[in-house]
């Protein structure tokens, strides 16, 4: 962005882009209405996401859909209370850990079946009552963790931009 000082500040085009830039600098509005709404709605949305994730075995839904809904809760909180404070609230490495844990959980279920002499992901080989049902639900939870981590990661990634921008902004 070339910072050419405009000699006359009342040039309509210049002041318009100036306003736009100022608005872009602080996309966060401290609205009590949005904050109160999110405070009330967020627990219900989180519960819905968990329900869709866990109950996907017996009704519509599953890990992918439930994971997105759970991720949306963080997006809502970030929109209501500001992206930066929300990112500080979640610890920096939490998202990366979550995404890795999700994939590891899925693979772990598959390898557990292998360890009991079955094929990879052959749930019925695991000597647990209703092994197939619980295996599928664990796998769904794994998918949900990966997806919610990735959705929140995309959001914070787009919000913060390229790492080179930070150095530019400081100079």
């Amino acid at each position: 962005m070339s910072a050419v000082a405009a000699p006359d500040g009342d040039d309509p085009e210049e002041s318009e882009s100036q306003r736009q830039r100022e608005r872009a600098d602080r996309p966060y509005v401290e609205s009590p209405i949005i904050m109160a709404t999110v405070r009330i709605v967020a627990p219900f949305v989180f519960t819905l996401g968990a329900f869709v994730m866990f109950h996907g075995a017996d009704s519509a839904g599953g890990g992918f859909q439930g994971g997105v809904i759970v991720g949306t809760v963080i997006l809502m909180v970030a929109i209501a209370f500001g992206v930066e404070p929300t990112r500080d609230w979640l610890s920096a490495s939490l998202l990366t850990t979550l995404v890795v844990v999700g994939v590891a959980l899925f693979m772990g279920v598959g390898l557990t079946a292998l360890a009991f002499g079955g094929a990879f992901l052959e749930y019925t080989a695991i000597p647990v009552h209703h092994a197939s049902k619980y295996g599928i639900e664990l796998v769904e939870v794994g998918i949900g963790i990966v997806v919610s981590g990735a959705v929140v990661g995309l959001f914070f990634g787009l919000a913060s931009g390229h790492a080179g921008d930070d150095a530019e902004a400081e100079s």
């Binding site: 996907g56 075995a57 017996d58 009704s59 519509a60 197939s132 049902k133 599928i136």
Partner: peptide, 9 residues
């Protein structure tokens, strides 16, 4: 075989 009611899952 799979023990879940949702055939899609």
């Amino acid at each position: 075989e799979a023990g879940v009611k949702n055939a899609v899952t």
